[in-house]
Design a protein around this nucleic acid. Sequence first.
DNA 1: TCCTTTATGTCAGGACTTTGACATTAAGGG
DNA 2: CCCTTAATGTCAAAGTCCTGACATAAAGGA
Lengths: 153, 153
Amino acid sequence: MEDRKPVDPPHPARDVTEHVGYRLKRAAAALRGAMDKALREHGLTVPQYACLELLDQQPGLSNAELARGAFVTRQSMNVVLRGLQDADLIFRPASADHGRALPAHLTAEGRSRLDAARSAVYAIERHMVDAVPQRRLAALLTDLDRMAEALGG
Amino acid sequence: MEDRKPVDPPHPARDVTEHVGYRLKRAAAALRGAMDKALREHGLTVPQYACLELLDQQPGLSNAELARGAFVTRQSMNVVLRGLQDADLIFRPASADHGRALPAHLTAEGRSRLDAARSAVYAIERHMVDAVPQRRLAALLTDLDRMAEALGG
DNA sequence: TCCTTTATGTCAGGACTTTGACATTAAGGG
DNA sequence: CCCTTAATGTCAAAGTCCTGACATAAAGGA
């Protein structure tokens, strides 16, 4: 049996629950839970909503591009897209004219569904944003981006 | 067909990628990815590592308590615990003496495995923390907590 | 005491996500 | 032109996580 070798934590903390990673995970989990609950009433999952939102602002994105935008694998996004396609919320051409990427677009029903869900999601985000002092919001966003970039996100 | 009804975003943004939720998700995904990669070399998943870390600092936690601490359901934590138990990294009594909760404890092997993995995880967290100005770190932690609380985290 | 509430562990089923692998397609360099 | 590289879509298998449900056990009040 070897002795325990304490590792210096990244910053002073009494336990893991004070680590940045833990707090980040907690906040993300809270957001995910709130969105799950709200979107369920609209018949959408979080990845599905994210996909619709991306397609609304960038019509014609391919499966791989959507996957990167939603931070999931191509395989996962493929499943999401099929679900959305079966629900007639998006459509994709059967074959690509140029490369291999199949550009996806919202259907009219997809747009209206997105509009409905967006109200609920924005209310959640508003509630979340209101919890932090307004003067720190910009810095918060900057720091989140820096952390993501530092980790290769 | 009804007209699209624009919803005011929670804060000024050109598109979803500038929303707080998106940035939060991006940072969390980057952290998760980095931890996944690092922990795989130690034969651990992120939930397993989180579980070991919690048990190291609070020995005797029950399945339900660990689930809350790791932001997953009891059912999910139950499978995590079984995996850790099968790998002899933790142990639980077959039956509870007092209530119904089964207190879990690290084995010696669990402790050494945790020590090894911790170095890798702390290096990641250090890298992440170093990416944000030190004077803003405390505020960042506070804001993450406020957002989590506002959403019922 | 009895009942309700709350919390826990567990089972079953399904949904989601991932890793690994393969074939197809476009682009660039030799 | 041919080959390598990179990117994409897809399939298969496994793991992970969730919702829903049920039985057990402690605590509190009528």
